[in-house]
């Protein structure tokens, strides 16, 4: 285990722990993106670039987009309901 891998793993643990301590949802999703990014770098240090590309493209990329779109959709529904209450 080279020093570089140890540092990356420690960063990984910091990201995972900070996801549970962050109040704001957007912040926890950002931390999850950082988690996936560090994970794809770890795949490279473990001599398996296949996983690195897939984790970067699929894990960090599409999963985070889906999280953000879910949040946007939830805010859209919340605004929608506020307007309805306002109209009533």
């Amino acid at each position: 285990m080279t020093l570089f891998q140890i540092i990356l793993l420690i960063f990984l643990v910091i990201c995972a722990v900070s996801v549970s301590f962050s109040k704001n949802l957007v912040r926890s999703i950002m931390e999850f993106m950082a988690f996936s990014l560090i994970m794809s770098i770890i795949w490279l240090t473990l001599e398996s670039p296949d996983l690195g590309i897939t984790e970067a493209a699929v894990g960090a990329g599409v999963t985070s987009i889906l999280f953000f779109v879910t949040l946007k959709k939830i805010h859209a529904i919340r605004e929608g309901n506020k307007n309805e209450e306002a109209d009533k």
Binding site: V19, L25, S28
Partner: peptide, 10 residues
């Protein structure tokens, strides 16, 4: 719920 989903992904 979203925190739970992130936990599962971790």
């Amino acid at each position: 719920l979203i925190k739970k989903i992130i936990g599962l992904n971790i």
